[in-house]
Design a binder for these strands. Structure first.
Length: 314
RNA sequence: AAAACAACCUGUGUUA
């Protein structure tokens, strides 16, 4: 348990090398890694987009006589889907069932999310029906993944259908579910409705958070409704919801794509004054904006500032 | 509290 906790800590810090060295240290001391040890490592490799390495660890598990469980399979599934390897993901799913690991709600959610993010909404929906039939009931995470999938596909009808089913099934929406629905509305340019939904959230005892507002602002910026987006920024403060770097990045991007680089730069300064630290995306956005506007002195200056702030250009 | 699942930002505004 102590080693597993340590390995988990390294994995969370993206220190996979250190995690592996702990693994070999365990071997030196004659401590046998268990399924949790291996799954922890497999999960972080999957998250890092290194499914091949994750599979190598899986093979090693088998060699040492340790069987994967549903956690292990779910982590690998995620890795396959992240790389768009749909068929291998589905093969893995079948393999999991054949090996006698019953999928639980988390595993189903990972499968549904993977299908959604690979554009397979039909299949994702039918998986949600199947799980229910098998007595594994969809939860708010399941519904949110589906709503988000329909939102990204520009399918408001689908998103609303899932939302209604969620309510009918007595599942309480949380801030993620609401935010996904806000996104669905924004993507079909129903900004007034999105605004109303955000207002409703507070009344329903589920106050919007920074991501909710960011989603709304992004939708407005993409539609060229920058003035409205700026108003939303101002309103966030009143709602006790702090803008973060992403909030500003979206607005900076919107302004510079609308050829309003000067205002973008002012907002960039304002961001710093308000104590929101620019990140690498902020700088990339500004640099892009300047260059796009045919300005060449400013980006060089900004690059200098960036280095002073201890940020590495990527 | 030893492990797995859902929502937001830049990069060529990509499903015609």
């Amino acid at each position: 348990p102590v080693y597993n906790a340590l390995i988990n800590g390294f994995c969370r810090d993206n220190k996979i090398k250190e995690a592996f060295s702990l693994l070999s240290q365990m071997a030196d001391k004659g401590i046998k890694p268990n399924v949790i040890t291996y799954s922890t490592i497999i999960n972080s490799l999957s998250d890092a987009g290194k499914v091949e390495s994750a599979l190598a660890v899986l093979a090693k598990m088998f060699v040492t006589g340790c069987s994967p469980n549903v956690h292990t399979f779910t982590s690998l599934l995620k890795g396959y889907f992240m790389e768009g390897r749909l068929f291998e993901a589905l093969d893995l799913w079948n393999q999991m069932i054949q090996e006698g690991s019953e999928p639980n709600v988390v595993a189903y959610n990972a499968l549904i999310h993977g299908l959604c993010s690979n554009g397979r909404m039909e299949e994702a929906l039918s998986v949600s029906y199947n799980m229910e039939r098998k007595g594994c009931y969809p939860n708010v995470t399941t519904y949110s993944a589906l709503i988000d999938g329909f939102a990204k596909a520009g399918n408001l009808v689908g998103a609303s259908m899932v939302w209604n089913k969620m309510i009918t099934n007595g599942c309480l929406p949380n801030v993620v579910a609401y935010t996904s629905l806000v996104d669905a509305l924004c993507r079909v340019f129903m900004f007034n409705q999105a605004h109303c939904l955000i207002e409703k959230m507070a009344a329903e005892n589920c106050p919007p958070n920074t991501v909710t507002f960011n989603t709304f602002i992004k939708g407005l910026c993409c539609a060229g409704k920058i003035e409205w987006a700026v108003k939303v920024l101002e309103q966030m403060d009143q709602d006790g919801c702090l803008p973060n770097a992403t909030t500003y990045n979206e607005l900076l991007d919107g302004l510079s794509k609308a050829n309003r680089i000067k205002e973008a730069f002012e907002l960039f300064r304002e961001m710093m004054e308000k104590g929101v630290e620019p990140n690498i995306v902020t700088y990339n956005t500004m640099l892009y904006g300047f260059c796009h506007a045919g300005m060449f002195k400013e980006p060089l200056q900004l690059l200098g500032e960036m280095l002073l702030m201890g940020k590495k250009p990527d």
